[in-house]
């Protein structure tokens, strides 16, 4: 048996204005999970300790919380792996959510983004046109299996640094779930779905891989890239900054071997978008004032692409890079 001090976040939105903390001692087997330790505390010490849970087997997705500052499923986290040197484990609600009571949070923003996807199959034709069920080959289904494992625990949403500053961002889980329907051969709304998720800021993903901690190995980080690729190959909302950025970066690499900074900035915000350019100008001037960018670099980045010329000096053997782009038929 092990003695563990649970350092608990306590808050009841019905009565409290500010949260406080309770230290609860539990005595549990050494191999116990954080969820079982919480259950013990609730059963034996304080019945008012609140947290969501159901299956205890990482299937229901209810018990995600912040354990020693790390968000994950309490049922999948072993106490002995996280216990601090002083014998304590701190437990807090998931970040990026409004607390309701103790570890229970308001999940509405997460569900709202999910329901915007219309997360059900919308086939191309009516059921009555089909003599049999709609079939999917094992090959086509393989792509969807990982995402179908999502238990909507919202761990990725809680970990997402973009959500933390801009709640308008769809978040990793919703984009991964959009992928699940976008790549489903039975679905008839591929274009609409890509447009919808693009409007919900698909391209605002910061490439940070915080969602690579997904407890079910859905790897939303990779699915987000898949959806972006689908958007580019289907040419959906190509006037937006995200696709323009990806294509300009690729184009400058093909042309020079390098990512040409000034050209990428102008190509992303829009070469003729004067207002957006005025917004990036102060930073450009600051960089110039410190000699980080030379006026020459600024000028060639601005004008060379219009003349169809590379904006920076190409690397040696750049024709090899072009061979790679051409062999793979990269659309730039």
């Amino acid at each position: 048996m092990a003695k563990i001090k649970l350092d608990l976040f306590r808050f009841d939105e019905a009565v409290d204005t500010v949260p406080h903390r309770d230290l609860v001692e539990v005595e549990v087997p050494e191999t116990t999970t954080v969820l079982d330790a919480l259950e013990w505390a609730k059963a034996e010490v304080d019945g008012s300790i609140s947290f969501r849970r159901s299956c205890r087997s990482a299937i229901c997705g209810s018990c995600s919380m912040n354990i020693n500052g790390i968000t994950g499923l309490a049922c999948k986290t072993n106490c002995k792996d996280v216990i601090k040197a002083d014998g304590s484990i701190s437990v807090d609600p998931m970040p990026n959510f409004q607390p309701m009571k103790d570890m229970v949070v308001h999940m509405d923003p997460f569900w709202d983004k999910y329901s915007r996807l219309k997360p059900y199959l919308q086939p191309k034709d009516a059921d009555t046109d089909h003599a049999t069920e709609r079939r999917v080959s094992p090959e086509d289904m393989k792509k969807l299996v990982a995402v179908a494992n999502c238990v909507m625990c919202a761990t990725c949403y809680a970990l997402c640094p973009v959500v933390s500053v801009d709640p308008a961002f769809a978040g990793p889980a919703a984009i991964a779930y959009a992928y699940r329907f976008i790549e489903d051969v039975r679905d008839g709304q591929r274009g609409e779905r890509i447009a919808q998720i693009s409007e919900d800021y698909l391209w605002l993903c910061a490439h940070c891989y915080a969602c690579s901690y997904c407890p079910k190995h859905v790897d939303p980080n990779d699915r987000i890239i898949d959806v972006k690729r689908a958007a580019i190959s289907d040419k959906v909302m190509m006037g937006e900054r995200g696709p323009r950025h990806a294509l300009t970066v690729s184009k400058t690499i093909k042309q020079t071997g390098m990512l040409a900074e000034t050209e990428v900035v102008l190509g992303t915000v829009g070469r003729f978008n004067v207002i957006a350019q005025i917004k990036v100008l102060p930073l450009a001037l600051r960089l110039m004032s410190r000699g980080k960018l030379t006026p020459f670099e600024m000028a060639t980045g601005g004008t060379a692409p219009m003349l169809g010329l590379p904006s920076i000096k190409p690397i040696p053997k750049v024709d090899e890079v072009r061979t790679i782009f051409e062999s793979l038929e990269v659309p730039v």
Partner: peptide, 26 residues
């Protein structure tokens, strides 16, 4: 490696799934 290209900068994957890998192989 003066003739090395950009690594793909986490961005070219958005356009093509293979190109960054082959650039880095080079």
């Amino acid at each position: 490696l003066t003739a090395a290209s950009c690594c793909g900068a986490s961005v070219v994957n958005d356009v093509n799934r293979d190109v960054a890998r082959v650039l880095n192989a080079r």
